[in-house]
């Protein structure tokens, strides 16, 4: 008996494979009795392994800094108070605070007050940062320039959570912080970048004070469209002097797909 006929005898196929074109969801997997076919068990395990790795792959700060320097952006590496990946995962409070000496280093830059401080943090996926952070910023820079908005030095944060941007924004005297952070990896999306906007950064703010653009990646919200959304929100935030629940995205679903 050939492999094909053996499999066809045992596996009950689902005659709706054609519906897969509508969704990334794992539909029409087929079954053996109540259970998954072997190939599907292994496919799932591989996707989970990839997502797990994305959480633990070390953050290549130097590669990111080189990319930022190529864009002509001054940048500085800093760390949160979470000393290890394990501490980072179990102590969100430490991931929200800069090391005290890094606060001093940011202040010692003596940079001019700026409209926007961009912060890049590994978050839960350094893969997302490696894939998307520099190209996303490259899409944003000409938009900022068109409005004459100034961008401060870029802080590159290891083991950082979203709220760490508040402390950095204060140190850099920024009107608004744009935090770019690796999102929690899903099985079908290990490279999702999140962008959080906070007007008037200061310690003690909550998520209700921020706007978020999620799922920024090639196979999700494409980078140019995400940059256009972020730019619209930033311009409105600076004009209305706020971010958060009172700032709702009102622009029509933007750019043509190309």
């Amino acid at each position: 008996m050939t492999e094909d006929t053996k499999s066809a005898d045992i596996v009950t196929l689902d005659p709706w494979e054609a519906l897969r074109r509508h969704t990334d969801a794992s539909i029409a997997l087929g079954r053996v009795g109540a259970s998954l076919p072997t190939s599907q068990v292994l496919r799932f395990s591989y996707a989970h392994a990839t997502a797990r790795d994305a959480v633990h792959i070390p953050f290549d700060k130097e590669a990111l800094r080189a990319g930022l320097s190529d864009l002509g952006l001054m940048n500085i590496p800093v760390s949160s108070q979470a000393e290890s990946r394990q501490t980072y995962l179990s102590r969100p409070d430490l991931g929200r605070r800069l090391k005290p000496e890094d606060v001093d280093r940011l202040k010692a830059l003596g940079s001019e007050p700026c409209d926007i401080a961009i912060v890049v943090a590994d978050g839960l996926s350094s893969t997302a940062i490696a894939a998307n952070a520099v190209p996303f910023i490259a899409d944003l820079l000409p938009l900022f320039a068109s409005e004459g908005l100034s961008v401060g030095p870029i802080a590159v944060v290891e083991n950082g959570r979203v709220a760490i941007g508040d402390e950095i924004g204060v140190a850099l005297q920024a009107r608004l912080v744009l935090m770019l952070i690796g999102e929690r990896p899903g099985l079908s999306s290990v490279d999702s970048l999140g962008a959080y906007l906070t007007y008037g950064p200061r310690p003690g703010l909550s998520d209700a004070d921020r706007n978020c653009i999620s799922n920024i990646r090639d196979a999700g919200l494409k980078l140019p469209l995400a940059a256009a959304k972020a730019f619209w929100l930033i311009r409105e935030a600076l004009k209305r002097r706020l971010t958060g629940v009172d700032l709702k995205e009102e622009q029509q679903a933007a750019l043509p797909e190309s």
Binding site: A25, S26, R31, A34, F44, H48, G186, S188, S189
Partner: peptide, 20 residues
């Protein structure tokens, strides 16, 4: 489907799991 929620990015129980 397949225990993978493509919207929320987490894993739960699948259509197959309930059959099991």
């Amino acid at each position: 489907p397949g225990a993978d929620d493509v919207m929320l990015g987490y894993q739960s129980t699948s259509f197959h799991d309930q059959l099991y």
